[in-house]
Write a protein that binds this DNA or RNA. Sequence first.
DNA 1: CGAATGTTTGACTGGAGTCAATGAGGGTGG
DNA 2: CCACCCTCATTGACTCCAGTCAAACATTCG
Lengths: 242, 242
Amino acid sequence: MTTKCDYCTLRRKALFDPMSPEDVAAMQRFKVGELVVDAGTQILMEGSNSPQLYTALYGMGLRYRYLENGERQVINFVFPGDFLGLQAGLMGEMGHSVEATTRMTLCVFKRSDLWSYMSADPQRGFELAWLAAVEEHFLGETLTTVGQRTALQSVAWAFVKLYQRLKASGSSDDGVFHFPFKQRDLADALGLSLVHTNKTIRKLKERQLITWIGDRITIHDMPALARTGLTTLVEPRTRPIM
Amino acid sequence: MTTKCDYCTLRRKALFDPMSPEDVAAMQRFKVGELVVDAGTQILMEGSNSPQLYTALYGMGLRYRYLENGERQVINFVFPGDFLGLQAGLMGEMGHSVEATTRMTLCVFKRSDLWSYMSADPQRGFELAWLAAVEEHFLGETLTTVGQRTALQSVAWAFVKLYQRLKASGSSDDGVFHFPFKQRDLADALGLSLVHTNKTIRKLKERQLITWIGDRITIHDMPALARTGLTTLVEPRTRPIM
DNA sequence: CGAATGTTTGACTGGAGTCAATGAGGGTGG
DNA sequence: CCACCCTCATTGACTCCAGTCAAACATTCG
């Protein structure tokens, strides 16, 4: 049995804009089903034009690109509430691939329904553009990190951001969060080598700022970690969810 | 006298989607005027919520962010046809600043009119989201460059991309293009130091791949440059223009 | 128990950063 | 007209952060 948008608890999290019953009903009509994929499954492929669009409901994944020489850049981590396939839906071609890191459940939408969905209410287009703008905003931050922060600053910044995103979407609190990714993934997200990432994490552990055991990360001193990462603690703005 | 959208030659360039007379008329109504700014003028500021939105008509500029320690990351170069202020218009807050590098002429729109403009035709929201998606797409590429390419690959990649963008918007051909930016700007865009950027450019010159004299860049061997930059030559897709 | 995957370390290397000085033009005020 | 200044490009010398290589550990799993 698939989740009814009406009862969906995800969209009620603090990170997301509240929705009117009409909006929920419209979204429900747009939703064609749910997809459950195992860890490791590729969901969208760079350069492709997927006939389906998704919203992550449960589980986590990665957006990434490969360079011709085999180097991988992780563009972003995928968390519940993230919309997948926007570029394909709009431009007709994905700029990156998406794969599931854990088992994931995804709401499925038909790309061909997108037009009628958006035509029904101008608010829809606004929200879709908003989602794209949020992603653009975040990529600008990430680019600044990879381009200008040192390894220590980058890793500290990443932990702060990850915690804030997960906290806002209700998947975490108390400075503890579930992180099913490998050091390799974090390294590829920050443009660092695996070895150097490992040693940098160790430094943060030695300074008693964080603990990372298994898939559980704990932040012990948030202000100090934020300072190390050259960032400030701000509550993320709410955004639409599709 | 301001340019009438009807006679605007910019939107007829190959890079942009053709527009119906009705669309042009709607855009004309949305446009409240033109703004001419001198080189060096700040147009939008990070964190602010500008009451105005712009489309670059003539001239070039930069999108950038500063880190607390004074490091600057150039997010992207601004060329004619680029829409400025999308994040402010949608999310209410810019994620980066924008400044004019040359004297620039900008079409001016009122943020408060955006809603009615988008309500008139669902196509509008689609286009706005499309623009955001294009930017997101490009930022993903840039992130991959900064994160994974070597300095030589990065600089080569940048020249190829710059040429392709300018060619598609009709500002260039024959591998020659106008580039009013400094080496400092390119360095900050690629996350490299000024000195190392300079030495890397020299390498490309020594290999007879490019020439950079004053504000004029010439690419002598496009295929070789693209190979050096680990990229392939593809015609950019057309996109909407506002 | 071996095989596979991921983490951790140490030793060494090298690409890119930093520092500093010199050039090369372009304005400008005397 | 020219000396002075300012900005930007260029170069050399040196440093160091981060990458590479390689091996040891730790866990999980069939």
